[in-house]
């Protein structure tokens, strides 16, 4: 009984203090030119097509594909679930909530990597997080995921595994080619998601 009153008094006063002081918003995050150069050099912004294909197949709700090509190109062909944010309109207010957010993993793509990379650098300079670039762009996507090249006979096992995996993904994503069965091969381990931050992210919760 007495403890409750002491506890209540302590907590309420601490609560009032914490409500009254301004939140410690660690400096609005903007990169210096050097930091940006470091990130560009280390290429941490790139996500491998296998990783993206896997997320698309698994219908991972955290993935948001962003097509930064023009509207015409987007209508002709786009990846499943992608939204179109043409590079020219990148800074319009309409797209800001998509680019500056901390819910989804945005993967920007263009035909090659150049335009997507430009878009990424702009968002990065603005201090936005969670934006990544599809490695190699759509061209490489088609090459690796939709029409994977069959490895040579002498290739190591995991090359075959990767190939079979991509074939399967390609099937799920509407590419050509049947899956070749090879019983004793495990699906290839996918490269882990590369986070743009130098610090590692913590895993947590009960997952």
């Amino acid at each position: 009984m007495k403890t409750r009153i002491i506890i209540t008094i302590i907590f309420v006063s601490l609560g009032l203090i914490i409500a009254a002081v301004p939140e410690n918003t660690t400096k609005p995050y903007k990169l210096t030119a050097n930091e940006l150069l470091d990130e560009v050099k280390s290429g941490t912004q790139f996500v491998h097509p296998d990783q993206v294909a896997d997320m698309v197949v698994q219908q991972d709700p955290t993935l948001q594909l962003i097509d930064i090509r023009s509207k015409e190109e987007f209508e002709k062909y786009s990846l499943p679930g992608a939204i179109n944010v043409p590079l020219n309109d990148l800074l319009s207010d309409e797209w800001k909530p998509y680019l500056n957010q901390d819910i989804y993993l945005n993967v920007l793509y263009s035909n090659g990597t150049t335009r997507a990379n430009e878009a990424w650098m702009i968002t990065r300079q603005l201090g936005y997080k969670n934006n990544y670039v599809l490695q190699g762009g759509l061209n490489y996507w088609v090459e690796t995921v939709l029409n994977p090249e069959k490895p040579g006979m002498t290739s190591p096992d995991d090359e075959f595994a990767k190939y079979n995996y991509r074939k399967a993904a390609s099937n799920a994503l509407g590419g050509g080619g049947a899956i070749e069965q090879k019983q004793d091969v495990k699906p290839a381990k996918l490269p882990p998601i590369k986070k743009g931050n130098k610090k590692k992210m913590v895993q947590g919760g009960c997952s």
Binding site: R4, I7, V202, G204, G205, C206
Partner: peptide
Amino acid sequence: YIGGILLGLTVLLANYISGRGVGASG
């Protein structure tokens, strides 16, 4: 209440060290 404070400090420590809370079912 003392137990609760100790429990809270444990969770706080877990966050300070490992950046995550405690768990069981995982």
